[in-house]
Simulated scan of single mutants.
Amino acid sequence: MIQVTNLTKRFQDFTALEHVTCHIGSGCIYGMVGSNGAGKSTFLRTLCGVYQPDDGQVLIDGKAVWDNPEVKRRIAYVPDELYFLPGASLERMARMYVSLYPDFDAQRFWKLCEQLQLPRKKSLGQFSKGMRRQAATILALACRPDYLFFDETFDGLDPVMRNFVKKLICDDVLERGASAIITSHSLRELEDICDQLALLHKGGLVLESDIENLKTSQFKIQIAFREPYEKSKFEGIRISHFEKSGSVSNMIVSGDRNTIVEKLNAMEPILLDVLPLSLEEVFTYEMETLGYTFQIDGMTEEEHK
């Protein structure tokens, strides 16, 4: 289990993470979304002991990560900005990983290299961006770690390769009980693979939830009445978003669906439709209730004034 408590990380001119708290269990795929600059990379680098926390703590199975080689050997980290030894080939990188990770599975690594058609002796500097990402990912998976951290995992991969990498990660989690944390600025990349999703905004964790709960606890209501009405008509119902055009309103509602629909039907509307929400809509409307606008798949975000 990963326990992050009041984690704060500062640099000279800004605070990258501020009072972040979360618990990530074993056998879990934990997705973290946020635009560039939200603090995702700093979060992962602090979790794997590249950065030392300024405040708070990071524990993996009850042990601090910073300056702890024993714990670090159980972690594999694929950063957003990949690094390989200068001039190194896959063969040279594999030898280095064998020396660092006692459980490195060379047989699995070379099998994956064959599947991906990655040349063993060619310099990684001559690989394309996507091939370099593939190489870093399978090196991490071949370490057979208990904890896998991926920063912008799918960047540079084509759709077929993205699905292949997703399957590899899922297999490790299901078969070995490993835990994976995957960051991305694209919610669509994560919603079909993660058990939990979190939203990091300006260094703070502003939303975290089980993905099934996110999908089932909120829904869209389209409703209309003959008589004039306002939002106050729906007092007692948790509404995170409300728009009214003429006599028809669209609402994003949270709670027990059957109970809410029964209550609305008792108001005798002339129109009542219940519609499912995409995960992207759920995150967008939740952010609105927190006072933010957030472009899930874009590069910008701003706080409501």
Rank of each mutant, 00 (worst) to 15 (best):
I2L: 14
Q3I: 05
T5E: 15
K9Q: 09
K9S: 05
A16L: 00
H19N: 15
C22H: 06
S26Q: 09
Y30L: 07
A38Q: 02
G39F: 10
G39M: 09
F43D: 07
Y51F: 15
D54V: 14
D55Y: 15
G56E: 08
D61I: 03
K63Y: 08
D67I: 00
P69N: 06
I75M: 13
I75P: 08
V78W: 04
P79A: 09
D80G: 12
S89C: 07
E91N: 13
A94V: 14
R95F: 06
C113H: 04
L116R: 03
P119E: 00
R120C: 10
K122I: 03
L124T: 01
Q126H: 14
S128R: 03
K129Y: 08
G130L: 01
M131A: 09
R132E: 04
Q134E: 13
I138H: 04
I138Y: 07
L139G: 04
L141K: 07
A142C: 13
R144C: 10
D146Y: 11
Y147G: 00
D155R: 11
D155Y: 01
D158G: 09
D158S: 05
M161A: 14
K167C: 05
C170S: 14
E175K: 15
A180N: 04
A180M: 01
S184D: 08
S186K: 15
L199Q: 04
L199N: 07
H201C: 05
H201V: 11
G203N: 12
G203S: 11
L207D: 08
E208F: 02
S209R: 09
S209Y: 03
N213K: 13
K215L: 11
Q218M: 15
K220S: 02
K220W: 01
K220P: 00
K220C: 01
P228I: 06
E230V: 03
S232G: 04
F234L: 00
I237P: 01
R238P: 00
F242P: 14
S245I: 12
S245P: 00
S249G: 05
I252N: 00
D256E: 15
V261P: 05
E262K: 11
K263D: 15
E268V: 04
E268I: 10
I270H: 11
I270F: 07
L271T: 13
V274Q: 03
L277A: 12
S278T: 15
E280G: 02
E288C: 09
T289C: 10
L290S: 07
G298A: 14
G298I: 01
M299F: 09
M299K: 10
E301T: 13
E302G: 02
K305C: 08
K305F: 13
